[in-house]
C-alpha cells in the first residue's frame, strides 16, 4: 500500500498504469479520481489545508483497515494540498483485489472515510471573498454504512 500527501500535481494516467501490475492474484482494479469542482461559478482557486503528520497517519490507518477488510492485494491513496484551480485533480484512490465487488467496495470505503476522517479542510477563494467548505451531514452518514470501525478505535 502507498499513501502520498503532496502539493505537486500527480500523473493520474501513469499512476493507474503502474498500479496493480504483476500480481497474479489480482482480477480487479478500481480507480477513482477527484477533481476540483466550481459550484459557485466564481471560484478562482481551492485552498486545501491539512495537518502534516496526522494526515499521513490517518490515511494510512484507513488504508490498512480497507486492506484487511477486503483482503486487497494493493491500495493507493494520493491527496493534494495547497492551492488548486477548478478542473485540477485533487486526489485519487486505487484498489486491487481478486474480485470486483471487493475492489469497488474498498474504493468507496476509502472515499467515504477520506471525506470526513482525514484532516483536510477546503476553502473556496473567489473574487467575492473566501469561504470554508462546510462538512455535510450526509458525509458523516455515509460512514454508518461501514459501521465506523475507525471511529470506535479512535474513541479511546
Amino acid at each position: 500500500m502507498r499513501v502520498r500527501v503532496q502539493a505537486e500535481p500527480f500523473d493520474h494516467g501513469a499512476e493507474c498504469a503502474r498500479f496493480g501490475q504483476g500480481g497474479r492474484d489480482v482480477g480487479a482494479v478500481v480507480t477513482f479520481l477527484g477533481v476540483v469542482r466550481d459550484d459557485s461559478g466564481a471560484m478562482e482557486r481551492m485552498e486545501i489545508e491539512h495537518y502534516p503528520g496526522m494526515t499521513e497517519r490517518a490515511i494510512s490507518g484507513i488504508v490498512a483497515e480497507a486492506m484487511a477488510r477486503w483482503s486487497l492485494a494493493d491500495a493507493l491513496v494520493i491527496h493534494r494540498h495547497g492551492a488548486l484551480k477548478p478542473g485540477e485533480s485533487i486526489m485519487m484512490v486505487a484498489t486491487a483485489a481478486r474480485h470486483r465487488v471487493a475492489a469497488f467496495e474498498a474504493a468507496e470505503f476509502l472515499m467515504d472515510y477520506l471525506k470526513s476522517r482525514a484532516p483536510f479542510w477546503k476553502k473556496e477563494v473567489g473574487a467575492g471573498g473566501a469561504d470554508w467548505v462546510a462538512a455535510k451531514d450526509e458525509d458523516e452518514g455515509a460512514l454508518v454504512r461501514w459501521s465506523d470501525p475507525l471511529l470506535k478505535s479512535n474513541d479511546v
Partner: peptide, 26 residues
C-alpha cells in the same frame, strides 16, 4: 497526539492538542 478524540478526554501525558472544524477531505 494526532488521534481523533473527545472534549471529555483527559490531557495527562498528551503533548499535542489540535482543534479544527469537521474535516472536508476527498
Amino acid at each position: 497526539d494526532q488521534e481523533l478524540s473527545e472534549f471529555t478526554a483527559p490531557l495527562a501525558g498528551v503533548r499535542e492538542v489540535a482543534f479544527f472544524p469537521p474535516m472536508t477531505g476527498g
